[in-house]
Design a binder for these strands. Structure first.
Lengths: 191, 191
DNA sequence: AGGGTTGGCTAATAGGCTTAGCTTATAGCT
DNA sequence: AGCTATAAGCTAAGCCTATTAGCCAACCCT
């Protein structure tokens, strides 16, 4: 009986596909094993537990998202960078809903920290183009992150009716953020 | 052997307490039954399935949150209403993290629809004070909802380090939203 | 008091995660 | 090529959760 030639990366990749196709909740040891043509216990040669698999999946997603953000904003600044980042984020979400869902609620943890830090860093880079006062930077970053993440989460959960104008709303949101941030770029007045 | 005198509402209430104390993920038939001093199968006399219990919990949370928003914004308009709504939302989140988590990702469904519609309606009422152009109203509402929900979600997942200045960031966010919406209140220029 | 309803119970099934221990494919060495 | 040590995948088994079936007694109503 030949071996399947599995690998930690292979297993996580299968989990990622499963998450996107059937939802994060369907990422189970049984279904991942089935997809790989292997018996469930075999997975434990590569991964310690389901929780760890979920963590690894979240790390993978955060890494991919971080790369996408970095690539998309490369060479842009100000409003262009903001729009590029926002669209890249939403593009990743719609293309990989299950992976994105994996990152939600698991922003803690040691390994994921490094990966999600890159996402944050990309957003911070976008903000740099707006020359926000130092005292406001953390607040602005959190606001940006909250807004994009919130839109993504709600859309992911089908909270908006999936009309065509969801796209319009997103563009409106980008515009709203841009104007607000631009206004903050000179007045360094704190709270 | 006397009866426990359970009730659909009682069961959901127990689930809600459990969610807040130990996290939404710990809302399981076993733990709810244990908390009520009852054997697991007994719950099925009141609830059809775990999924339905989760739905009911989400509906309860959405209803409570809707009430809190309505009460908080009563009699206010403009910036005051916005601040009151935002703070009420965050207050509910910190007071009932598990219930709030229950509403995430379950914005679909028939019964929850009515409850969550009241939350949306309260936010729409806040926006009315800003006299947004009709063409922009849906977009503004989605932006507001995304932002508040995103902040709540990230904080709930401990995505920000829980510093004291998370409060400051939230106030900054309110200010940011207020200025942006105020700017939209006259210029009815669409995208 | 008596009778029907129904709430809670025990027993049992199915399915998911996980561990233990076996077997043998496979890589690496000689 | 043959030998050996490692480790990949397997079966068997335990535990836990959700769920169903069927029993029995507590409660409500008259």
């Amino acid at each position: 009986m030949p071996r399947a030639g599995l690998d930690r990366a292979t297993v996580v990749a299968a989990a990622a596909e499963l998450a996107d196709e059937r939802g994060f909740g369907q990422v189970t040891m049984s279904l991942v094993a089935e997809r790989l043509g292997v018996r469930t216990p075999s997975l434990y040669k590569h991964i310690d537990s389901l929780a760890e698999l979920h963590q690894d999946l979240a790390t993978l997603a955060a890494t991919e998202l971080g790369d996408a953000l970095r690539d998309a904003t490369q060479g842009y600044a100000g409003r262009d960078a903001l729009a590029a980042a926002a669209r890249a984020m939403r593009s990743y979400l719609t293309g990989h809903p299950g992976r994105y869902a994996a990152t939600i609620g698991i922003f803690t943890g040691p390994e994921l920290g490094a990966a999600s830090a890159r996402v944050i860093e990309s957003l911070a880079a976008v903000l740099r183009g707006y020359r926000i006062a130092p005292a406001d930077r953390t607040h602005a970053l959190r606001t940006l992150r909250s807004t994009l993440h919130g839109f993504a989460t709600i859309q992911n959960a089908a909270g908006f009716q999936w009309n065509a104008d969801t796209d319009q709303s997103f563009e409106w949101l980008i515009d709203f953020l841009d104007r607000g941030l631009a206004q903050k770029s000179l007045s360094s007045k704190p709270i």
